[in-house]
């Protein structure tokens, strides 16, 4: 018991140093422009100001961007969840002919670098006529195979006891019914895990939302808005810090909420 306390001596300073950049970001958000550049590294601002926040809110249109980001992230996560849960279920339970090929193909594409494939994706979405709304960006984000979520769901569903399914089938439940009523609700930990990861990624996404909202800046997300603080001639550190602070709070809240589910989700899926 007492030995455990000694660890705090190590952990507390380590963690403080560890989160210094994060703390710096928050404190910079409250510093005046001159203090940011000339004041150095002190954590507490000499004089507190909300200028950066108002600037971030106005110039970077954070009000609009925030609601866009919510819509973009939630829709993306919903699609990823639905698609990877159904396919994970189909692959995880019952021997499906061609399963090995599909899984092999998925894993193979996992290691192909992305980014440079943006132009074909852009042409595709444009061809579908989806370029005027956020849906184009959502599809471009959610569309490419999310191999890890699929594998997580697959592993999780594969590990569920057969009796559960048999009993339901005996009662006359159909395949989709078994999935939506029995299996999916049991997969909450994986849902939480996949949701958290994809939400974080979608929330901070930059390149795809930028490319797909070129003509409609009112549709941009926070990740894109952040870059308006990088000028050709100078970077607005204070505005950037304020914007980053605003945009991080929801993520941290969600992490706190989902942390536990999340740990179980990975463990459960992989264990099987």
């Amino acid at each position: 018991m007492r030995r455990m306390h000694l660890w705090h001596l190590l952990l507390i300073p380590l963690c403080l140093a560890w989160i210094y950049p994060f703390v710096w970001m928050i404190s910079t958000a409250f510093k005046s422009e001159r203090e940011v550049f000339l004041g150095g590294l002190s954590v507490l601002p000499k004089e507190w100001t909300l200028d950066n926040f108002t600037r971030a809110w106005d110039t970077a249109h954070f009000g609009t961007y925030l609601s866009n980001t919510v819509v973009f992230s939630v829709t993306t996560v919903a699609i990823v969840l639905l698609v990877s849960a159904t396919s994970g279920y189909a692959l995880g339970r019952g021997s499906l002919p061609g399963k090995k090929v599909i899984v092999g193909l998925l894993i193979a594409t996992m290691f192909i670098p992305h980014g440079y494939t943006i132009i074909p994706i852009f042409k595709l979405v444009d061809g579908l006529g989806l370029n005027n709304g956020l849906l184009g960006a959502v599809l471009a984000t959610a569309g490419p195979a999310h191999v890890v979520p699929i594998l997580l769901f697959m592993g999780y569903f594969a590990g569920m006891p057969q009796e559960l399914e048999d009993a339901a089938r005996m009662d006359g439940a159909s395949y989709p019914r078994i999935f939506f009523r029995i299996m999916l609700p049991l997969a909450k930990p994986v849902i939480g895990t996949v949701a958290l990861f994809n939400f974080m990624a979608a929330w901070n996404a930059f390149f795809i939302p930028l490319v797909f909202t070129l003509g409609r800046p009112e549709l941009r997300t926070l990740g894109v808005g952040m870059y308006s603080f990088f000028g050709q001639e100078a970077t607005d550190w204070g505005g950037l810090a304020a914007a980053a602070t605003i945009s991080l709070l929801p993520i941290i809240a969600i992490f706190l909420f989902l942390q536990r589910t999340f740990v179980e989700g990975i463990a459960g899926a992989v264990k099987s």
Partner: peptide
């Protein structure tokens, strides 16, 4: 396996459209 293929369909569709095709392109 009909239902299984139905469940796989959305993923396969997106996979072909947003992973395979851009790669081949």
């Amino acid at each position: 396996h009909a239902w299984q293929y139905v469940f796989l369909a959305p993923m396969l569709l997106l996979f072909v459209a947003f992973t395979l095709w851009p790669m081949v392109a």
